[in-house]
Design a protein around this nucleic acid. Sequence first.
DNA 1: GCAAAAGTGTTGAGATTACACCCATGC
DNA 2: GCATGGGTGTAATCTCAACACTTTTGC
Lengths: 227, 227
Amino acid sequence: MLAHYPPPATQSPSPLVAVDVVIFTIDAGALKALLVEVRSGPFAGRWAFPGGRVPVGEAPEATAARELRAQTGIGDLYLEQLRTFGEPARDPHAHVVSVAYFALVPGMGETQAHHPKYARMQWFPVRALPSLAYDHNAVAQYALGRLQAKLAYTNIVYALLPHEFTLGELQEVYETIRGRRLDRRNFRKKILALGLLRALRRQRRGAHRPAQLYAFTHREPMNIQML
Amino acid sequence: MLAHYPPPATQSPSPLVAVDVVIFTIDAGALKALLVEVRSGPFAGRWAFPGGRVPVGEAPEATAARELRAQTGIGDLYLEQLRTFGEPARDPHAHVVSVAYFALVPGMGETQAHHPKYARMQWFPVRALPSLAYDHNAVAQYALGRLQAKLAYTNIVYALLPHEFTLGELQEVYETIRGRRLDRRNFRKKILALGLLRALRRQRRGAHRPAQLYAFTHREPMNIQML
DNA sequence: GCAAAAGTGTTGAGATTACACCCATGC
DNA sequence: GCATGGGTGTAATCTCAACACTTTTGC
């Protein structure tokens, strides 16, 4: 778009611009985040959140979505800006100002894609992350705080759940992220009173008594007092 | 710090990095923001939030604090990151990724400093801002939303008030920012019950009945359910 | 029949709202 | 004396938290 403006060689040097994406999912009753192994540089061999450089002419959010799709195959997800991390020392190789994003994908994404930049890719439980490259442990902590906070006053849980789910599964997501148990009767009263769910005509059959299936009436982010 | 790493001429070009600072204050019973007049470029003559380029080796937050002090003389203030705006089209001159900050200064700062980059500097009522340069109207809207939200669950009002103040003045700040009237008795009960204030031994004398003066017990940001 | 998850109401405590009158001062 | 903002309490309502038993199914 702005290609007719040449790179500003005459201007004073600027830090590099990058994005990092913290992708959360719920898997096996645990909150997990996707990490990739850094292949080269001072942090080679360490785990980090997926990301990449922002080229001139592309919005950082577009870079985040594009890199995510390229590296993981994940296309449809909830993506919001988290915070920008710009300490000069966060990357010893160069001063990189990184816009961190925060993404949610529903249960088990089959993310087995590959990317030349990274050796491996794996979901890690958020409560037990390894020592990460760059300042990514701080990024992870910030992202978890944001997720916990937004769970209370928005409806973004929808992005962590498949299209149909039981109230038990929904409650389990809340309990997993907030890290404490909730009363089942109070939870159901509250969530149903909000009118965000519609009961489907189907039930989930499992090892025990069948459970009513529900779906969200709206699958866009809304501000609502949930908990 | 990282001066021994030369500017990455070998790397692909990166957007420029800048900061913009939305400074709020309460003045004459109105919420105001500080704007400067852009002197050159496509937006010459328009108003914008103060800001500047982030040099290699400096954290964006440090740039924001430094520019603010240089341009306005304001040194001691509340400063937090707001959000990063990086749409390529936001600045027609070049792709500038700008980290926006959000600052609060207590009543009437005597900010009459000058800076060669800007012609004029002036406080504008936030509810009646002119058409701003870049995407700064969107930045303003985002900042106002953040201020309103944080007023409800933190104690950051302290940064908008002088060291001593009356409960009436405190309530007026809340009413100004939230844009609606509050019940005086309920407000006082609530705010005093939080234990964030201590009554001083002095009173404010004015045109009418003298009012008890209060001060905050803590002047650091804390998360607390205020309203 | 038994283990395991689903489903369902009531009560008490605390928080929030609504509301009206007297007080101290400057002019 | 009057206009103006300061100061104070109570009752009704709503919200939130605590709490136990029955149902349905697979095995």
